[in-house]
């Protein structure tokens, strides 16, 4: 069974990471595009949210698909990290990286941070669970509504540490995409030979656009550009 062949080898594991990663990149781009409707106004944003909800089962199929992608992505990352640790039991006393990017070197811990962020973000915006936990005077969400997404956004990004957390997390997403969007395509062997194989124009644009799009919302709300 060829999936088993994949699962058993490091190249296959990386291919699974790459495919799930690319799915998540597509999702992230769509999510970001959806978010930007905040700048159009409450009606547009809430209308979009209502439309997504109206898809019913389809929405759940997508959600479960994303969940599976995330879980596989993490599972493969964990296994590859274990393999890596076993591959060099005694480390160098001195090591000087030459060309590896900060992005490539922060994939693992940056990925963990992104996982923490995703959990927080789901509790924050999808379920609204964080709302009761923070119902103190400086509550995150004075009132969480399952229908007024626009209102949720407006009220969410007035707390400085929340905005900071989102901004920092998106910086890690930028790095994760800068390496991941590029390397996943190479991992799948979908590249043509190049004189400068470390160059990555498409991945750079994707990473920057996603980062800008996502960061714009909390920052704009915080500084009152939209209200």
């Amino acid at each position: 069974m060829w999936l088993l062949t994949l699962y058993r080898s490091t190249v296959g594991k990386k291919a699974i990471m790459a495919v799930t990663g690319l799915l998540l990149v597509v999702f992230v781009i769509g999510h970001m595009a959806g978010n930007l409707q905040v700048f159009v106004g409450a009606a547009r944003m809430n209308g979009y949210a209502a439309f997504l909800k109206s898809t019913g089962e389809l929405l759940w199929v997508v959600r479960l698909g994303l969940l599976a992608a995330v879980l596989l992505h993490i599972l493969m990352a964990l296994q590859l990290t274990r393999i890596k640790a076993a591959a060099r039991p005694v480390d160098y006393q001195k090591r000087q990286p030459q060309v590896s990017t900060v992005a490539s070197r922060t994939m693992r811990w940056g990925g963990v941070l992104l996982l923490v962020f995703i959990v927080f973000h789901l509790l924050h915006f999808t379920t609204g669970t964080i709302f009761p936990w923070a119902s103190a005077p400086d509550a995150l969400h004075p009132e969480f509504s399952h229908t007024d997404v626009y209102g949720n956004v407006m009220s969410a990004f007035h707390t400085p540490w929340v905005v900071l957390f989102y901004v920092v997390a998106m910086l890690f997403l930028l790095l994760h995409l800068f390496h991941g969007a590029w390397s996943s395509v190479r991992t799948l062997g979908l590249t043509t030979p190049s004189r400068q194989p470390m160059k990555r124009h498409v991945a750079t644009v994707v990473a920057l656009v996603v980062w800008l799009g996502f960061t714009a919302v909390p920052v704009a709300v915080f500084f009152g550009v939209i209200r």
């Binding site: 490091t10 076993a86 591959a87 490539s104 070197r105 390397s183 991992t187």
Partner: peptide, 13 residues
Amino acid sequence: SFGGCTLFGECME
């Protein structure tokens, strides 16, 4: 028991 490739690019260098 070699590790997997995550395309650091250090090998080429």
